[in-house]
């Protein structure tokens, strides 16, 4: 390599500064490990010695009463909150505790927040276009062209989320449920390995819930999906494996039947709320 070229390759001057581009290593099965994680806010332990493993391609539901630490757990995985103790690994190669939010997002962890936010003035198609994994600097964005490949990718996601017929409609006219699906679609455009979905069916109608259940179970296998949800009926309809959180740690883990027969769970969670137990 000529001197000029080596000077130009500035990202290689300090090797430790080069972004870690190695692929996510899931040869051992799990895509996410959380080990002995503790988070303390002013002496209050929001997460207390949490151990959680998510397998590649798995669909996992996380339930637990308010304040059980579900949202804090999501915050740790996406890099928004740093744990006081413990370790969090993505695959067996990437230590998430050494990364910031954009780095974690570009590694393939997508998060859907509770309240759907889509770009209302833009069409459904354009919403997906903007969300797509691409060079997001100014000039590449200015000169970006619509290629057949991109179109196919958007069409594929439109199929998945069932909004093909509404593709040219502004996102502002969509119903609440459709906006949730569009937002999941926007996450899918980034080709995530792991999707974190926070209360996807809050405020949905019965039919919309069914559609969402189909959508999420359809995604599992291609990517890992972690769903945090309060609605027990919905969890029962999609879950293969359920984790119950309580006071910042795992109380029980297993199939829905196993979990709902666990005496501890019945006491702290299901027993606490008659309506959900029924």
């Amino acid at each position: 390599m000529s001197l000029l070229q080596s000077l130009k390759a500035r990202d290689r001057v300090f090797d430790f500064m080069a972004p870690d581009a190695s692929p996510v290593d899931v040869r051992h099965g799990p895509i996410l490990y959380m080990e002995d994680v503790t988070v303390t806010f002013d002496g209050f332990k929001a997460i207390n010695n949490l151990n959680l493993t998510i397998d590649d391609g798995e669909l996992r539901c996380i339930i637990g009463p308010n304040g059980a630490g579900k949202t804090t757990m999501m915050d740790i995985i996406t890099g928004k909150t740093r744990p006081t103790e413990g370790s969090v690994w993505f695959g067996s190669r990437h230590n998430l505790l050494n990364m910031n939010e954009p780095e974690i997002a570009s590694l393939g962890i997508g998060r859907k927040f509770q309240k759907p936010t889509v770009f209302e003035a833009l069409s459904v198609f354009e919403n997906l276009e903007l969300a797509m994994a691409a060079d997001k600097r100014i000039l590449p964005t200015l000169t970006a062209r619509m290629t057949g490949e991109i179109k196919d990718r958007i069409d594929e996601v439109l199929q998945t989320i069932g909004l093909v017929s509404l593709r040219y409609q502004p996102a502002g006219i969509l119903s609440h449920g459709q906006k949730q699906w569009l937002e999941i679609g926007m996450l899918l455009m980034q080709r995530p390995r792991l999707l974190l979905v926070d209360e996807p069916v809050a405020g949905m109608t019965e039919q919309e819930m069914e559609r969402t259940a189909e959508l999420l179970t359809g995604l599992a296998g291609k990517q890992s999906v972690v769903v945090v949800e309060h609605d027990m009926g919905f969890v029962r309809s999609i879950a293969r494996k359920v984790t119950v959180l309580h006071q910042g740690s795992v109380l029980a883990e297993g199939s829905m039947d196993q979990v709902s027969n666990d005496p501890n769970v019945v006491e702290v969670y299901l027993g606490a709320d008659d309506e959900e137990a029924a």
């Binding site: 936010t117 964005t141 970006a144």
Partner: peptide, 17 residues
């Protein structure tokens, strides 16, 4: 351009963009 759509997205939901 796509940049224009990013602008409109910023106008309507900056944090999301």
């Amino acid at each position: 351009s796509k940049l224009g759509r990013v602008c409109v997205a910023t106008r309507d939901a900056e944090a999301r963009t």
